[in-house]
Computed example of a mutant assay.
Amino acid sequence: MSNMSAPPRLVAPPYDTAILPWYGGRFDAAFVALHPFFALPGVDPAACAHGTLVMERDEVPEGMSLRDHLDAQQAGRHADVTLDEDAVDMAAKAQGIAMSWSVLAARAGFADHRAVNRALRTHIRALKPAFADPQGAAALEAFCAREKLFLPTEGVFQPLMEARLAALFAACGCERVVVGDEFGEEQEVRPRAVLEDARPWHLVPDYPRNLPRRLLAEDGSLMACVDWDSFFTLILGTHARFAEADPGALFEGFWCAPDTELSWQRQAVQPLVGPSG
Results as ranks from 00 to 15, higher is better:
Arg125Val: 01
Glu175Asn: 03
Gln73Tyr: 09
Asn117Thr: 08
Thr82Cys: 13
Arg118Gln: 15
Ile124Asn: 09
Gly96Val: 03
Gln135Ser: 13
Ala92Arg: 07
Trp101Pro: 02
Arg125Gln: 14
Leu140Ser: 05
Arg146Gln: 14
Val88His: 11
His113Pro: 00
Arg121Trp: 05
Phe183Glu: 12
Leu70Asp: 11
Gly155Val: 02
Val189Ile: 09
Ala92Lys: 04
Val81Lys: 10
Asn117Asp: 13
Leu165Arg: 01
Leu168Thr: 02
Asp68Gln: 15
Val178Ser: 02
Ala126Phe: 03
Cys174Glu: 12
Ser100Phe: 08
Arg146Pro: 06
Leu140Glu: 06
Leu140Asn: 02
Gln74Ala: 13
Ala171Gly: 00
Ala142Val: 01
Asp68Gly: 09
Asp133His: 00
Ala92Gln: 03
Glu154Gln: 15
Met64Cys: 14
Leu151Gln: 10
Leu151Ile: 00
Asp86Phe: 01
Ser102Thr: 06
Gly76Leu: 11
Ala98Phe: 02
Cys144Leu: 05
Phe150Glu: 04
Ala166Asp: 07
Ala171Asn: 05
Trp101Thr: 00
Val103Trp: 03
Glu147Ile: 05
Pro129Asn: 10
Cys174Ala: 12
Ala138Lys: 12
Gln187Phe: 10
Phe157His: 09
Pro152Phe: 11
Glu141Phe: 08
Gly63Gln: 09
Leu165Ser: 06
Ala75Tyr: 05
Val156Pro: 01
Met90Ile: 14
Phe143Asp: 00
His113Ser: 11
Ser65Arg: 11
Pro134Val: 06
Cys144Trp: 00
Lys148Leu: 12
Arg121Asn: 08
Ala75Met: 10
Leu104Asp: 04
Val177Gln: 02
Asp89Gln: 13
Leu120Cys: 04
Phe183Cys: 07
Ala75Thr: 11
Arg125His: 13
Lys128Thr: 14
Glu185Phe: 14
Val156His: 14
Val103Thr: 03
Phe183Ile: 02
Gly76Cys: 04
Phe169Leu: 03
Leu165Cys: 03
Val179Gln: 06
Asp86Arg: 05
Glu182Trp: 10
Ala92Trp: 03
Arg125Ile: 00
Asp71Thr: 05
Met90Thr: 10
Ala132Gln: 10
Arg164Cys: 07
Glu182Cys: 06
Cys144Asn: 02
Asp71Lys: 09
Ser102Asp: 07
Gly180Arg: 08
Glu147Ser: 07
Val177Asn: 00
Leu120Gly: 05
Asp89Ile: 01
Leu165His: 05
Asp80Gln: 14
Ala79Gly: 00
Ala142Met: 01
Gln158Glu: 15
Pro159Phe: 03
Thr122Lys: 07
Val116Leu: 15
Val103Gln: 05
Ala98Trp: 09
Leu165Ala: 09
Pro191His: 03
Glu154Met: 09
Glu188Asn: 09
Leu83Ile: 05
Ala126Ile: 04
Val189Arg: 06
Ala139Thr: 00
Pro159Cys: 09
Ala108Met: 02
Leu168Ser: 01
Gly155Asn: 06
Arg176Gly: 01
Lys93Ile: 11
Asp86His: 08
Arg77Gly: 11
Asp71Gly: 06
Gly155Tyr: 07
Arg176Asn: 08
Phe131Arg: 12
Ala170Lys: 11
Gly76Ser: 10
Leu83Asn: 03
Glu147Gly: 07
Val156Leu: 13
Glu147Gln: 15
His69Glu: 12
Glu147Thr: 04
Cys172Ser: 07
Gln135Ala: 15
Ala138Asp: 15
Arg114Cys: 14
Ala130Thr: 12
Arg67Ile: 12
Ala75Arg: 13
Arg125Thr: 07
